[in-house]
Amino acid sequence: MPDRTHEFGKYGARGVKGSDAVARQLDELAGFIATPITQRRGLKARLNYLTRTPHALQAAHAAGLTLTDRTLKAWQTGRRRPSKANLEKIETAYRTVRRHNVARYLLQRLNSRGGTRVEIHPLNQSQVDRRFQRVLEYRTLNIRQWDTIIRAWAAGDTSALDEAWIDSIVDLGSQWGQYEYVSAVGFAA
Rank of each mutant, 00 (worst) to 15 (best):
M1I: 10
P2C: 08
D3W: 10
R4L: 14
T5N: 00
T5S: 04
Y11V: 08
G15K: 01
G15D: 02
V16C: 07
D20Q: 10
D20G: 05
D20S: 12
A21W: 01
A21M: 05
E28R: 15
L29D: 07
F32T: 10
A34F: 02
I37K: 03
T38K: 14
A45G: 05
A45T: 08
R46H: 11
L47T: 00
N48D: 15
P54N: 15
A60E: 03
A60Q: 04
T66F: 14
T66C: 10
L67H: 03
D69F: 13
D69R: 13
R70Q: 15
R70Y: 13
P82S: 07
P82C: 11
N86V: 08
E91G: 01
Y94S: 05
Y94K: 04
R95K: 15
T96P: 02
T96F: 04
V97K: 00
R98Y: 04
R99M: 03
V102R: 05
A103H: 05
L107H: 08
R109G: 01
R109P: 01
L110G: 07
N111M: 07
S112R: 09
G114L: 04
G114R: 03
G114C: 04
E119M: 11
I120T: 01
H121L: 04
P122H: 00
N124G: 00
N124Q: 01
S126E: 07
V128P: 00
D129G: 03
D129A: 12
R130H: 10
R131M: 11
R134C: 04
V135A: 11
Y138N: 12
R139Y: 08
R139V: 08
T140C: 06
L141C: 09
N142M: 11
Q145D: 10
T148G: 06
I150H: 02
R151F: 07
W153R: 04
D157N: 15
D162T: 11
I169N: 01
V170A: 10
Q175N: 06
Y179F: 06
Y179P: 03
Y181A: 01
V182F: 01
V185M: 05
F187I: 08
A188R: 14
